[in-house]
Amino acid sequence: MTMAMERLGAPSPRPRSGGAPVVVLCGCLVLLSAAGVLAGVGGVPDRGLLLTSRLPRVLAAILTGAGLAVAGLIMQSLARNRFVEPMMAGTGQAAGLGILLATIAAPGASIMLKGLAGALAAFAGTAAFLFLVRRLPPSEPFLVPLLGIVYGGVLAAVATAIAWNADLMQFLETWFSGEMSGILAGRYELLWANAALLAASVFIADRLTILSLGRDAAEGLGVSFAAMLAAGLGLVCVIAAVTVVTVGIIPFVGLVVPAMASRLIGDNVRTVMPVVALGGAVLVLASDTLGRFIRFPYEVPVGTVLGVVGAFVFLAIILTRRG
């Protein structure tokens, strides 16, 4: 694990304070928000367009990005592996499956209820994943993401088979591919749950770092491994389910942002968490804004943009390690 982390790049030997990155990221966030609010189809918006469409979309991108990045950080602490994130390891797919089953069972259910069903399914799916991960040899950290991809693929296939039979394929598409053009006032507010969950995750930040010292060391400090696992899983799964039901699956954010923040700041969850949250918000907002303008007036879904952007960032991380 340690060796794998060292392979991630040529990091600084000493930690830097989180202050400078936080200021830079806040600046980026303000600029991107201004661009996202002011520009677009219809030009500079009037009050109605601003409040019903432009502002909700920018807020949705920020809440989604911050939530997914922090969920990635939490999941990496729980799995003690840098290469997992909820949307690539079955959590998002399990949430989608839960939402699908809820839709079949109660077609008229509110988005809140569907989100709850998604969160429960995500909890079961992710707990099963972490159970499987513990059987893998710790000397092979790259087996974990491989297992995650296969596991997520199996869950997605099951969901697809069910959706096909129930004639709900177009719904499944909206949950499985992250897309923000449908975000309007009244249809994104569930995402504010992410803000509350981020605040809650600050309270377990120290315990997450302690967990990363190993199970025995954590128990020796009076931190219950089982209780922390349940709390961390709960946070990750609600964030994932809320995101899947409102925006859809957005890959890479939970992987790329914590990896870069670790290289920049370090592995102390408490100090790195603000940078991770802001970095996720900036990455998703930038990708969504790029997707809106790259073939204006048409849109490219944010999940697609992130697939490309994320691949380049990941390549950059791998290549800079030689430099």
């Binding site: 340690t2 982390m5 710790p138 990363s212 010292l213």
Partner: peptide
């Protein structure tokens, strides 16, 4: 405990 893999950037 017996040696464990520690997070490197602490």
């Amino acid at each position: 405990p017996q040696d464990a893999a520690l997070p490197g950037r602490l």
